[in-house]
């Protein structure tokens, strides 16, 4: 992956006015978009767009709003790996921030290819954006294709059960699906990296869930937070909690016998192991953080 945001030091030396270069780069970007002169991969990942349009505002949120600190980035390899993370926060901001962490703070500034719910890809505007950012539907064929081509894939096995859980249940991991992600990792022989995210639970504390409204709108839940729907659009502003994202030690999956990916015992054991690791790390990070907002 190339990188266009961080200018090389040699160019800094000869260029006394960085804004000029930024403006020129912006114009060049605009020209590329207007003439269609860019590349997307088979999944629709548009690196040019992601790095230049999506990431800059998210970077502000990451650095200034949530003051995110990462731990254990050295555990994220240069090749294929499956990141498995806890999921929380009513809106899946945690997923986006994890992608930012890897894109900005991994030595190779890697793209994180996340697996999302079909609801995401069903939604106009959001669905195409999610694809442009490199994400795809959570299904084994896509996961295995990405993993075997050496990509970094992230999955949030709690799904809506995790993001949509009430505030009182914060940092209590929900059920980890059926372990489809473990089969994908075992089949492709890539390590699983448990990722523990602390801080996302407090951004939109979900006090209640208006189920009839959720059903009417076809949503998995309709949240009531201290600011939403009370303050209307202002309720969309997340609370500025302090975040930690820890990338745990890789769990190897290449030592298994043939057919282990279909063996429910192997899959359940690995799933439990990953889940337990994340749960323990969450408790440890919570103590480390102290106050949710002052951190």
């Amino acid at each position: 992956m190339t990188d266009h945001d961080v200018p090389s030091t040699s160019r800094d030396a000869v260029d006394p006015e960085p804004w000029k270069r930024n403006a020129a780069a912006g114009l060049a970007f605009l020209r590329r978009r207007l003439t269609g002169d860019y590349q997307v991969d088979d999944f629709g990942y548009d690196e040019d767009f992601t790095r230049h349009v999506l990431m800059p505002p998210l970077r502000l949120l990451y650095d200034k709003w949530f003051r995110i600190e990462t731990i254990g980035m050295e555990n994220v390899p240069a090749g294929g790996a499956l990141l498995v993370a806890n999921h929380s926060g009513t809106v899946a901001v945690d997923a986006v921030m994890t992608a930012m962490a890897v894109a900005d703070h991994h030595p190779d500034r890697r793209a994180l290819r996340m697996l999302g719910a079909d609801l995401v890809f069903d939604t106009p505007v959001l669905g195409p954006l999610a694809r442009k950012a490199g994400n795809t539907l959570a299904c084994n064929p896509d996961a295995e294709r990405l993993l075997s081509s050496g990509e970094l894939v992230a999955v949030f096995p709690e799904g809506f059960k995790g993001v949509g859980k009430p505030f009182s249940q914060r940092y209590k991991l929900q059920r980890f699906g059926r372990g489809g992600f473990v089969s994908a990792a075992v089949r492709t022989g890539v390590p699983i990296i448990p990722v523990s995210i602390v801080g996302a639970e407090e951004i939109y504390p979900m006090l209640a869930n208006i189920k009839p409204l959720a059903r009417a709108l076809g949503l998995p839940y309709f949240p009531v937070t201290p600011t939403f729907p009370l303050l209307g659009p202002l309720g969309a502003i997340p609370l500025p909690s302090k975040w930690y994202i820890e990338f745990g030690e890789p769990i190897p999956t290449d030592g298994f016998a043939e057919g282990a990916a279909e063996d429910p015992m192997v899959v359940f054991d690995l799933t439990d192991h990953v889940r337990e690791t994340i749960q323990q790390t969450l408790y440890r990070l919570l103590t480390l953080r102290g106050h949710p907002f002052l951190g």
């Binding site: 266009h4 000029k20 270069r21 403006a23 020129a24 114009l27």
Partner: peptide, 25 residues
């Protein structure tokens, strides 16, 4: 693009303007 860059005195030769594109591929 080039005219605009010129008006804003961005002083970017065509090679510099094209540089991010080459990287973006």
């Amino acid at each position: 693009e080039q005219r605009l860059a010129h008006t804003l005195r961005l002083d970017t030769g065509p090679d510099q303007v094209d540089a991010p594109e080459a990287e973006g591929r």
